[in-house]
Design a protein around this nucleic acid. Structure first.
Lengths: 210, 210
DNA sequence: TTGTGTTAGTGATATAATTAACGAACTGTA
DNA sequence: TACAGTTCGTTAATTATATCACTAACACAA
């Protein structure tokens, strides 16, 4: 088990490459190159090759990469060669947006259960999934062998929900609540803070001051 | 005009610090330290001091930082000392989620107009803002002196919408569509790709392979 | 077969970011 | 005033990441 410390930036780019390759493949293109990919996603060709080099040799010198092959390789690297069972907690506007987001299912993320604390929402259908009461979270998520939990609840209850997801056995949590969650180290955690993104923009708009 | 190249990671952390300080302030605490902040947001004390040092000296040695002062300083650095006029394009589930997101208004991001291409949505109210037809985007956004555009439309039309936002004079674009937008360099752009976040998680869950 | 052009993979170099270490400046006490 | 205890601001060291430059491998044409 060699742990060769792969930069997170590399993983993010691989994800982008794979989506770009999906496009290229749809256009019927058979072969591509690091230069093509670089241009398509806005990085340098050397960067593309370096990123791929962490995981093996996927191209042919003088020729380039086979689009379908490379795409498949990257998907396997990212862990997308099989589906993931996802539990969504919080059926508010954000939860609704996430559950209807096509990009998830396309990439193999299947929302197998949805929970909400609001009795008015419990029992309603979102897509083909029924909203269940939050009290059933641990039990149902465990039954479904849920691997990923999405936290789309108010900040005050986010930690509590995260604890329950972990109790249910999830391996990873995607957190949309703007709080620092306390999570055991073996659970993967990623925070998405929508306001932060706007603030990076406003900083940059006025950044000539510095 | 010295451009001292501030890491984006620093800006993101400043945003997190400021939110943490808002909490601390609400709890009535007057003084804090780099160590306290570090613990509260999960970074090192040296990191906190380094990040602040890019912008000046805000603390007192042997004492720490005044919570209210530091918070205000950071908000000003981030460009949040006055409101921003935001235009939201796309009133689907994601648009709805964004428009109802409390965190935006709290930080001074005011959604002043919402546009959608679907005639069924045009005329409906989201909060206290009426959904307008996409054809009025350029005109209305210009009138409102819109500074920021949020793109929450399908990928196929995202570039077209971005072009119109720029024509309307926005300075920054937050893009939720999974495409690389072609934007003049003086316009600030940030992409939020929801699927990428899940894919970083799935990579890490299986990362012992590497 | 030889030469030209192309492109991947990779080690070396350069840049950037984080962490560590330490002197300076303040508080409070005696 | 002197001293002990803090904590900032900053420089130096370390680590991480990205870029560059070169070599190896292939295609194709003459």
């Amino acid at each position: 088990m060699k742990t060769l410390k792969i930069p997170e930036a590399t993983i993010i780019r691989l994800s982008v490459y794979s989506r770009h390759l999906t496009d290229v493949d749809r256009r019927g293109i058979i072969t591509t190159s690091s230069g093509d990919i670089a241009e398509g996603v806005g990085v340098s060709p050397a960067q593309v090759r370096k990123d791929l080099a962490y995981f093996g040799e996927f191209g042919t010198r003088g020729v380039g990469y086979n689009v379908k092959d490379l795409r498949q390789h990257i998907l396997r690297i990212l862990g997308l060669s099989s589906d993931w069972s996802v539990s969504l907690v919080g059926a508010g506007n954000l939860g609704l947006a996430l559950s209807s987001y096509k990009g998830f299912r396309e990439r193999g993320f299947i929302i197998t259960s949805i929970f909400d604390a609001d009795p008015k929402k419990v029992g309603t259908m979102i897509g083909n999934v029924e909203v269940l009461p939050i009290e059933q979270l641990v039990e149902v998520a465990k039954q479904n062998l849920t691997q990923i939990g999405i936290v789309a609840v108010p900040a005050q209850v986010a930690q509590e929900i995260a604890d329950q997801l972990i109790e249910a056995g999830v391996k990873a949590i995607l957190n949309f609540a703007p709080v620092i969650l306390n999570i055991p180290p073996q659970i993967e955690l990623r925070n998405v803070d929508l306001a932060v993104n706007l603030e990076v923009l406003t900083f940059n708009v006025g950044a000539q001051r510095f």
